[in-house]
Design a protein around this nucleic acid. Structure first.
Length: 403
RNA sequence: GGAGGGGUACUCAAGCGGUCAACGAGGGCAGACUGUAAAUCUGCUGGCUCUGCCUUCGCAGGUUCGAAUCCUGCCCCCUCCA
């Protein structure tokens, strides 16, 4: 195990706040394997890069030799974490929770080492709670203190509804820490209240209170709001390689550095060197972003795929070439239709759009091109016996053959 | 239990009997400019068999030639009093 200073340096990197650092040092000094807890509710079917910020930190603890517990909140998912939200979460049914949990169990190993990870489900202990247990848990905290939480406070002041069950969420999550005897819990900055409640509850129960480590929230593609499925500004770790690459390239230059700090495995001083090269303006930010995109795709797929995506990207967008492997190549048979028109092709055959109104709009705007010539009529006939390039906007392209 | 306020398109938010598929803002999409950046500018943004037709303003009825707008009942949210 590394010495305490080295450990601290790694632990601090990228973290936005540690409560209390003294406790952390104390725990590290004990030279014991610490129990590191981080949890995720299986309310959505896949993970995005925002979630991996905490996983990356967890991985670092793993490499430092600590006992990493990845908690799947299958029980708490039925409530839904109200953190940072201004509305009550819709509840998720148990079949979905189960399915999502299975996906999570696989996905996390794209970052964590399988043999060093302990997976726990909180239904294992929370599922045994009876009414009395719940009431007793609820008695450990007060309404006034619960309303101190920023999102509750805002909603309350804005005359927006708060359901009673939402108060239970932080309490149950805190109880998880009691049950697991967590030494450290990781979470996003929006989890601060919940993590601190775990600390308090542990103290009440006479357990050494956990250290809370908050990681910054990663902004999504819009560069403003946190990455989230509901804002549709996320990069999923199951995005197709070329999509993932493209999405990373579309983030703005400032945000790129945050991505480096929170997601890249590059050593800190190497990142500093890269930043320096921009300041001396002998590097194009785009080229540095290419490196980031390559690294991330390589992590979730493979090194080869990473560099392949980079080549594709450069050829497709910088050199404006048509790259075979990127274009979805679709061969469609227009059975009895002699000359299929563009509307039919897009809505019925390729099913790119459901709405014909939308296609009309795009045509009017000159967004749809065949072999780079804009189409201007909805009944434009497509070439019948030759392969052609169909583009819709800048991001969608097909190589189509009609036989 | 009582009194009052409110529920409008993806979100916020106007409209308060006809000119409303519904002002405006945000978001999204497209075009221009670019580094598929960002910022900026312009247009579009319910659906369809699209110079017309159909369905939307919490839900269900009613009044009217005509309702998002008026009436009745129901559901949901908020505030104050108890």
């Amino acid at each position: 195990m590394k010495n305490i200073d080295e450990q601290l340096k790694i632990i601090r990197h990228g973290a936005s706040e540690i409560i209390q650092e003294d406790d952390l040092i104390e725990k590290l000094k004990s030279n014991k394997k610490l129990v590191i807890k981080a949890g995720l509710d299986p309310t959505m079917p896949d993970m995005h890069l925002g979630h991996t910020v905490v996983l990356n930190k967890l991985k670092q603890f793993q490499d430092l030799g600590h006992d990493v517990v990845f908690l799947i909140g299958d029980y708490t998912a039925s409530i839904g974490d109200p953190s940072g939200r201004d509305i009550t979460r819709p509840s998720v049914d148990s079949a979905t929770i189960k399915k999502n949990s299975q996906v999570f169990q696989k996905e996390i190993y794209k970052i964590l080492s399988k043999d060093k990870t302990r997976i726990e489900f909180n239904s294992k202990w929370l599922g045994k709670f009876n009414g009395i247990d719940l009431i007793s848990l609820a008695s450990s905290y007060t309404v006034a203190r619960m309303l101190e939480r920023d999102d509750f406070d805002k909603r309350y002041k804005a005359n927006k509804p708060i359901s009673i069950h939402e108060f239970l969420y932080p309490l149950l999550q805190a109880y998880d820490s009691v049950h697991l005897k967590a030494d450290i819990e990781l979470g996003g900055t929006d989890q601060k209240f919940n993590l601190l409640l775990g600390r308090k509850l542990q103290e009440q129960k006479g357990i050494s209170p956990q250290v809370c480590i908050m990681m910054p929230l990663l902004e999504g593609l819009d560069g403003i709001k946190k990455m989230s499925k509901s804002y549709d500004n996320y990069i999923s770790i199951s995005d197709k390689p070329n999509d993932m690459f493209g999405k990373v390239m579309s983030i703005n230059d400032d945000l790129m550095w945050k991505y480096f700090d929170l997601l890249s495995a590059l050593p800190l001083d190497e990142i500093t060197t890269l930043k320096g090269s921009i300041d001396k303006n002998n590097a194009n930010p785009r080229d540095i972003k290419l490196k980031l995109a390559e690294e991330l795709v390589a992590r979730f797929y493979s090194k080869n795929i990473g560099s392949e995506c980079m080549d594709n990207f450069i050829n497709r967008f910088s050199n404006k070439q048509v790259t075979n492997d990127i274009l979805a190549e679709l061969v469609k048979k227009a059975k009895n239709i002699e000359n299929i028109d563009i509307m039919m092709l897009l809505t019925k055959e390729l099913k790119t759009f459901d709405s014909t109104s939308e296609v009309r709009r795009l045509i009017k705007q000159g967004a749809i091109k065949i072999n780079d010539n804009p189409i201007n009529a909805i009944d434009h006939k497509c070439p019948n016996n030759e392969e052609f390039l169909l583009k819709v906007g800048k991001k969608i392209a097909y190589k189509v053959t009609i036989k």
